[in-house]
């Protein structure tokens, strides 16, 4: 038995039909073509599928697509404003904060959520906030630096 879901993704009204057990991650990727969120584990342990649900950071693999009805979803595809990168995106390129890049969308969405509520985090706060976003390439060093550089840039702006 399929259900119809009407929701908002990155400010755009969208509608899709899915089975009730489908996750928001699968709906975003397979029904809406938004493949920026990745499935690294499917069990909330890696953060590669991070999105926001009504502004709150969540793992989209741990949300049913049905729950999105009437809610507001934010994904990596909505982070840049048109062709202008978000300061976090620019900082990740400038500071080489990605190697393979598969965790990067989730980390950017998570870091954006952090800076929205804490514009001047300590390194330790960045590290604990991002503890649910696994990166296997970088050892996190350059990621923390990039988040701090973006935070500084955003405070200046």
């Amino acid at each position: 038995m399929s259900i119809t879901v009407s929701t908002s993704v990155n400010g755009d009204a969208v509608e899709f039909v899915c089975p009730p057990e489908e996750t928001l991650l699968d709906a975003l990727r397979n029904r809406l073509g938004l493949t920026g969120a990745k499935e690294g584990c499917g069990t909330g342990d890696c953060g590669a599928c991070s999105v926001t649900l009504n502004g709150r950071l969540v793992c989209s693999c741990l949300v049913l697509a049905a729950e999105a009805e009437g809610q507001e979803i934010g994904t990596i595809e909505g982070l840049a404003q048109g062709d202008k990168l978000h300061p976090l995106q620019q900082a990740f390129i400038d500071h080489a904060a990605l190697q393979c890049g598969v965790c990067t969308p989730g980390i950017l969405v998570a870091a954006d959520a952090l800076l929205k509520q804490n514009p001047e985090p300590s390194d330790e706060e960045v590290r604990f906030w991002l503890a649910g976003n696994l990166c296997r390439c970088t050892g996190y060093d350059k990621i923390v630096r990039a988040v701090q550089a973006a935070a500084a840039e955003m405070r200046r702006a």
């Binding site: 969120a37 990168l85 598969v102 990067t104």
Partner: peptide, 11 residues
Amino acid sequence: GIDKVTGRAMY
């Protein structure tokens, strides 16, 4: 870089 920070890169 831009493909990978915007979610556009195809894995």
